[in-house]
């Protein structure tokens, strides 16, 4: 098992910014490689949210992979190494099974810097399922900067907010004992892509601001995101990297009732 990958400066930045977003919530995870792409699919440690990141071989200048396999990565360290990239550098990632180390090499004209990152053992008894289906009864594309503003406004008031989607508008709101916040936006607005606005039925759900904000912090404000959700179901934020891949973030809702059924029984996955 080995690979040799090369990314030009622009695409190495894309890799770095996505790793940075993931590493703000997950400190270690598996990086999977196959003949078409590299992928990170991981729950956060609390299993409240999940990332699905794919960077296709189209993003690479060189993509030599001899097999499909996974590496355990310390994502924080990997992120710190990637962040050191200079404007004139291309990025090489090499892995050789015998060494169990990932080599991260930045090359510029007459200059070369490298790091090696030791692979780690990760115990993951319940990895994310291969196919994840997120029910969406409401979906729209929204300006990242606008959504970031909504999160910022909400965090002044509470640690969670509510999204309420109607056929003709979306309302973001939250409240505390004494204060409230509400943002209403329609499909004809500049912040939402009109043709993307699709509400199958009125949908209403609450989500943690901390998780969403950690994710959104790393998204460039000029980007557009797709948001999809259903009542009291997870929300999905899709950040598309054009033809090069995508970063999806899924987050479980907060549900008003804290009571669980009295006859609840734990199953194997709980241990």
């Amino acid at each position: 098992m080995s690979f040799d990958l090369q990314l030009d400066n622009e695409n190495s930045k894309i890799l770095a910014s996505n790793i940075s977003i993931i590493s703000s919530i997950v400190s270690e995870c598996f990086l999977s490689i196959n003949k078409d792409s590299i992928q990170i699919k991981t729950f956060d440690p609390t299993r409240i949210s999940m990332f699905d990141f794919v960077l296709k071989k189209e993003a690479f200048q060189e993509f030599k992979v001899d097999n499909s396999f996974s590496l355990g990565l310390n994502l924080e360290t990997f992120n710190n190494m990637l962040k050191t990239a200079k404007k004139d550098e291309v990025l090489n990632l090499n892995f050789d099974e015998r060494e169990q180390r990932l080599r991260i090499v930045f090359k510029a004209k007459n200059r070369e810097r490298s790091f090696t990152l030791k692979m780690i053992d990760i115990k993951d008894d319940n990895p994310p399922p291969d196919k994840v289906k997120i029910l969406r009864t409401a979906q729209f594309n929204i300006d990242a900067s606008f959504f970031q503003q909504v999160l910022k406004d909400s965090m002044m008031i509470s640690d969670h907010f509510k999204i309420h989607a109607f056929p003709d508008k979306v309302i973001f709101s939250c409240s505390s004992f004494s204060n409230e916040m509400e943002t209403v936006v329609g499909p004809e607005s500049e912040e939402i892509e009109t043709e993307s606005f699709e509400i199958i039925e009125e949908s209403e759900s609450s989500y943690s601001l901390e998780f969403l904000n950690n994710f959104m912090k790393g998204i460039r404000s000029s980007e557009t995101l797709t948001i999809g959700f259903a009542t009291n179901k997870p929300i999905i934020l899709e950040y598309n990297l054009e033809n090069k891949g995508y970063l999806h973030y899924m987050l479980a809702p907060r549900i008003e009732s804290v009571a669980d059924e009295e006859d609840y029984e734990y199953d194997d996955e709980d241990y």
Partner: peptide, 15 residues
């Protein structure tokens, strides 16, 4: 804090 934790569901419970 109790409410905040208990209201937050886990993602895998939807899978």
């Amino acid at each position: 804090e109790q409410k905040s934790i208990l209201q937050q569901k886990r993602l895998d419970s939807f899978f």
